[in-house]
Design a binder for these strands. Structure first.
Lengths: 340, 340
DNA sequence: TACATTTTCGGCAACGATTGCGTAGTTTTA
DNA sequence: TAAAACTACGCAATCGTTGCCGAAAATGTA
């Protein structure tokens, strides 16, 4: 491998000590203008770049932050990552991205690796199969800055940012009711996720406020969160069965929405029977067939806020004990009949 | 911040030297079974984890690889990243992802940061606005392992992996011709990209083989690659103008495809006039309206191969002078009439 | 028993950058 | 004119780990 220039080389070339070079480069007042000039010029000449690994070792700071998401190939998360990156970059941090693929084991391994990799802090969106939080509480107790976004948990006191899922779900459900639908199915994500609970509550609350009796058969959890198409097909058949007869459907996540849409696209009979609203950040959700009304989350902004929170934690000189949970507004887009 | 356990602490606690601890943990034959056992037990007890930054400094290896893509919020790239990650993870490398957003300046800055960050190698998919390769050749000459994927360049001798763009473009165009279309527009990406040139040649070659006269007005380059919807609207209007009268369209990239689809979705008159085939790795491309036939690249596999190539370069004990350029097959999916 | 060999381990130095402390040499102040 | 203050720089330690060399102890051989 190639040999990068070091402070020692500069020191030797100019017959001064490494400390002087270091101070000159950092523009210390203890160094004469003359010496500074010589050092800076020579450093530029040999294209000196400080070795970030050495700096990290010395400063016990890596200037990098870790991110855990379920999957980067998911519009919502990739947009979030864009937001994280935009802030991190500005602040001089590198971003190390890992994926849990919604597996608890991978979450544990990845978070362990990140902490071990000496990241200065971690941004976490929980895997849908996680119910044991010890791998995170351990790190948190040891003082590692952690911020949760999107899929947050109650159990750990720190900064969090997510969509106002209750409100968005409420609005979506209420809108369906106002449009005249009464039998509204709810295709929910894995039940242990915060977003699942919040969205379910929004749904239930809207029903209650509009005096629609709650029918538990109208709720179906997807434990595989859309990774299994079969799971969703069964749920749809269930909703559309004669005994249930759902007229509309509120879908609680990105992936569930697109998988549902694929099934309906292949089965126009079903598609005609259902008015659909779903969460989705796909950039082509508005040109899918059949039509789907959708709730779009402020993913980019969520990433930005999460990154800002984390960097604030990392750079705080004193331990932080006051935390905030930010809720971002989702945007509801009504698109009318499936057949348009 | 929390204090991680170190080798020194173990050494002190067991009244042995740090070197002995290090060797014991690495299972050196020079250490007695007895000592090994004591060290390993105590290390486990205090949850010792080696500090990767110190190891990096010592070994001049960071066990991380850098990736440069245009945009993670793009199905093709996010799938590629998934492939890269799967291999890198197995081999013990971390992945640092950066985005050029198709800007030359950001590409230069990001690649500089990655190299400076002491990654052990870099995976690059060129930004569409890059014509000057000095920032890369410099690193390459200094011995930094580099592998190109997707958007590759001729100028640097190394491993490369991309789709057989010529073949896929040829097949797509030939298929349109066989279906009876003669006036086939080609919506091309930025002209300086390898993939643009290869796809254009496939298109031209198919026309020639089928004895269709080439009309240069049927080719439109999109210098903004879909970042500007206006650019594409103008191109479509051009293709559909009376004097041109295109009957079909071959679209050369993911983003161009989806933006075109949005325009056509909003303008059914236009949509009816055009049979469309486009490159796309969107997971919902098959349920868009209007219908679009598409070429899907083996993105995940491309990421895997690129990562394998890079790791091979990194871990090679001798300089490598024999390089390979792998071409992966694209998959053509015919979906018939727009109105289906 | 005497010597050679092997096993087991400690000490030192280095990776590259940073920084507290010390100290010549110079200038300012009383 | 001597004391004080300041300027400009070097020394050495530090971060955690590991390669190299050598030394002591254990073992083997004659």
């Amino acid at each position: 491998m190639f040999q990068a220039a070091t402070i020692k080389q500069i020191a030797e070339a100019l017959s001064i000590s490494p400390s002087t070079v270091s101070r000159a480069l950092r523009n210390s007042h203890e160094i004469s203008a003359e010496t500074k000039k010589r050092v800076i010029e020579y450093a530029k000449k040999i294209n000196y770049q400080s070795n970030p690994i050495a700096v990290s070792l010395r400063n016990r700071r890596s200037n990098s932050i870790g991110v855990l998401v379920a999957d980067v190939a998911n519009s919502f998360f990739s947009q979030t990552i864009n937001g994280i990156e935009s802030i991190a970059y500005e602040a001089g941090y590198h971003v190390i991205i890992t994926q849990s693929h919604d597996s608890y084991e991978r979450e544990v391994i990845n978070i362990g690796h990140l902490a071990n990799r000496s990241v200065d802090g971690i941004l976490i969106s929980m895997s849908s199969h996680t119910t044991d939080y010890r791998h995170i509480t351990q790190l948190h107790e040891r003082g590692l800055p952690i911020v949760f976004f999107d899929r947050i948990i109650e159990e750990i006191q720190t900064f969090k940012v997510t969509t106002d899922n209750f409100k968005s779900a409420y609005e979506a459900t209420a809108l369906l009711i106002e449009k005249g639908f009464k039998k509204i199915g709810h295709l929910a994500n894995a039940p242990q996720l915060s977003i699942t609970v919040e969205r379910l509550q929004g749904y239930l609350s809207a029903l209650a406020d509009h005096h629609i009796e709650f029918d538990e058969r109208l709720i179906k959890y997807c434990h595989e969160g859309g990774r299994s198409q079969l799971e969703i097909e069964e749920a749809l058949n269930h909703f559309l069965s004669d005994s249930i007869g759902a007229e509309a459907l509120f879908i609680a996540s990105d992936r569930l929405s697109t998988v549902t849409m694929r099934i309906l696209n292949n089965d126009p009979d079903k598609a005609e029977k259902l008015m659909i609203i779903g969460f989705s950040n796909s950039d082509v959700i508005d040109i899918l067939s059949p039509r789907i009304s959708y709730i779009r989350q402020s993913a980019f902004e969520m990433g930005q806020i999460a990154a800002q929170m984390l960097i604030k934690l990392i750079e705080s000189k004193y331990p932080v004990y006051e935390f905030e949970t930010r809720l971002l507004e989702g945007q509801l887009h009504w698109r009318g009949n499936p057949k348009g």
